[in-house]
């Protein structure tokens, strides 16, 4: 139990008759970078606000470091939050924003702690500025410094990067990850961006309609999705619904795909696992070629079936022309089986 920072057991919350969070059970280990990933309205933010204490659970238990948090108000919980809108105090300087929690905790050497914390987020020398004079990225760093400076057990981050532009976001992703390792602090990161979650997390909980669909490492989530929702939400995919007999799966449009699955199943082949070649395979017509810089996407029609193939832009696909006929193939071990 000692190395568990957050434990949720059967946590449920209803808003206006709709279950925003539905019977969620999960544990987050000490020092883990844990992401709650899902589309907007899936309950991930509500779940985080329940951990912070801003929403009460209707049923279920929330434990922080083994202590039951029922009835404990937000200011008595050893968790800090980085808000999506930063929520910096406009009437206070950067230094006073960061010092806010320290002054309440009545610790000594406030100035030194503030300075070191600002250094950690690369904002040394910003002490006297006011939040209004900072860019979005800088405000986000101040919010981060303010939240980590008191050394909370858990840091909650509510889509902290979603308001920033792509380049800034990539940079901050790496910084966040480095900071989390340096501090060895438990981070709970809420995002709807699957790439962000895959790149940063130790483990991910994929959420859908208030429920947890799957919990696992980024590799497990992507390579072995447990449900069709996870498979579709995390990355793109080519899905084949059919009936298997243990050796092949027959789809309703007459394809036979080599797979050990039996019964009603959905097969998934990720776009980057598919290969175009002139040899044996599924015949298909090139419908569209999408140039994406580092990679290329090719949309194929195999009969009435739309297939997506993705490959690195290493020249092999440069010859593919819209309208031409080709074949598409994949290795049997790249076929993922999902229950139906």
């Amino acid at each position: 139990m000692d190395d568990l920072d957050v434990t949720l057991r059967g946590v449920t919350k209803t808003f206006g008759g709709r279950r925003a969070v539905d019977d969620v059970t999960l544990t987050i280990r000490r020092g883990e970078f844990f992401s709650l990933l899902g589309p907007s309205g899936c309950g991930k933010s509500t779940l985080m606000r329940m951990i912070a204490g801003f929403e009460a659970a209707e049923s279920g238990t929330i434990l922080l470091g083994g202590a039951d948090m029922a009835g404990v108000p937000p200011h008595k919980r050893d968790v800090n939050m980085v808000f999506q809108s930063y929520a910096l105090f406009p009437h206070l300087s950067v230094a006073e924003n960061v010092a806010f929690g320290l002054r309440i905790a009545k610790v000594d050497d406030v100035d030194g702690r503030v300075r070191r914390s600002l250094e950690q987020v690369n904002l040394a020398g910003y002490e006297k500025r006011t939040p209004a004079t900072l860019s979005g990225g800088e405000q986000q760093r101040v919010a981060l410094a303010r939240a980590i400076v008191t050394g909370p057990r858990v840091l909650l981050l509510d889509e902290p990067l979603s308001a920033l532009d792509l380049k800034l976001r990539k940079g901050l992703q790496q910084e966040l990850r480095r900071l989390q390792r340096d501090l060895a602090m438990t981070f709970v990161f809420v995002t709807h961006d699957q790439e962000e979650a895959l790149a940063m997390s130790d483990r991910i909980a994929v959420m859908n309609r208030g429920r947890v669909e799957q919990i696992g490492s980024p590799e497990e989530i992507y390579e072995r999705p447990a449900t069709r929702f996870t498979a579709e939400f995390v990355g793109a995919g080519n899905f084949f619904e059919g009936v298997g007999d243990g050796r092949t799966v027959r789809t309703n449009d007459g394809l036979s795909i080599e797979s050990a699955a039996s019964g009603n199943v959905t097969l998934l082949v990720r776009p980057e696992k598919m290969r175009l070649n002139g040899g044996s395979g599924l015949p298909a017509r090139v419908e569209e070629v999408l140039y994406q810089g580092a990679s290329m996407s090719i949309i194929l029609m195999a009969g009435d079936r739309r297939l997506l193939v993705e490959d690195a832009n290493d020249g092999a696909l440069a010859r593919v022309r819209v309208g031409e006929t080709t074949t598409v193939s994949w290795r049997p071990e790249d076929v993922l089986v999902l229950p139906r």
Binding site: S85, L88, I104
Partner: peptide, 28 residues
């Protein structure tokens, strides 16, 4: 903004401290 009151409580300020340190200065 309600978020600021939440941020204050999140950082350990009781509702009374939040009132004096955030609400009053911002409604000055």
């Amino acid at each position: 903004p309600k978020r600021l009151l939440e941020a204050s409580q999140d950082l350990g300020a009781s509702p009374a401290v939040t009132f004096w340190k955030v609400t009053v200065p911002l409604t000055m």
